[in-house]
Design a protein around this nucleic acid. Sequence first.
DNA 1: AAGGAGATCAACCGCCGTATT
DNA 2: AAATACGGCGGTTGATCTCCT
Length: 309
Amino acid sequence: MGRSPCCEKEAGLKKGPWTPEEDQKLLAHIDQHGHGCWRSLPAKAGLRRCGKSCRLRWTNYLRPDIKRGKFTLQEEQTIIQLHALLGNRWSAIATHLPKRTDNEIKNYWNTHLKKRLAKMGIDPVTHKPHADADTTAGSGARSRVAAHLSHTAQWESARLEAEARLARDAKLRALASPPPPPASSVLDSPTSTLSFSETAMFAAAAHDVHGVAPVSVQHLQSYGQAACGEDQFGAGTFDSALLDCSVAGADQRLLVAVPDAVDPDQNEEDKGYWSSILNMVNSSVSSSLTSEVVQGPVTYYLPPATGEF
DNA sequence: AAGGAGATCAACCGCCGTATT
DNA sequence: AAATACGGCGGTTGATCTCCT
């Protein structure tokens, strides 16, 4: 009946931080034999760990295709937008951030991005401005919120502009270095195979399964303003500039024309938002294959504009 | 210099869907 | 069909680091 007992029930298994020796054993074993069955791996590799612990250590830390260190501005924006679409589905988000693990993204969200959005007056759960939640608030309260947003955005703007400059410099330096490896080895995320229909499914999923409220364009504009600075792009163009500003636009395709400032037609804004997200999701695959080609227009599935999600 | 507070992140826990027997 | 293991996922914890007073 069923399978043999799980290794995790065994006594005397080590827990806690991994030592360099343990890492070496695990690396050497996987390098030679692959991970195969995680349950049986610890014994074969000479580790007093459970298979689950080994798998976690490998996927979150030892895997050779992991990029560590500071998240770029582009990555931050990708996380924020995908989070707006997918919610706390970190593994799904991670598939669109090559070389980043779901654990790392989750940590980064919880320690950095969530706080930053909250600071900007955006609810990190719904991705809507806090003022929206309080429909009974008077105009005085709204203007206070707006003033706070503006003030916070100015500070964020200064900081992120500096980051953007650094990112741009790094990009230019990278362009001057040797060409990237062949496409087959660049496609780091094997699960990043989203097709058109899958992006539609994503949209539908966010729509009716996860209960994630779609973000109106203004919210992204708010972040865009913070990231790029109002003077540089002018009001109403922040969505287009959102990703461009960080890396000089060399390989960015998250560019969707959107209405100026506050459009009375919320549905139109939502369409622009969804187009923006879906465009990014689609392009994340192709951008893994080429860093230079800019795609032409794409037709998108858009969820029916019900006005209420 | 000391220690308290807050931030960070690797690792664990528990649940869930799927595979296997 | 039922029972159980496995792998994966998201939430949480706790050790360590950094900053501030």
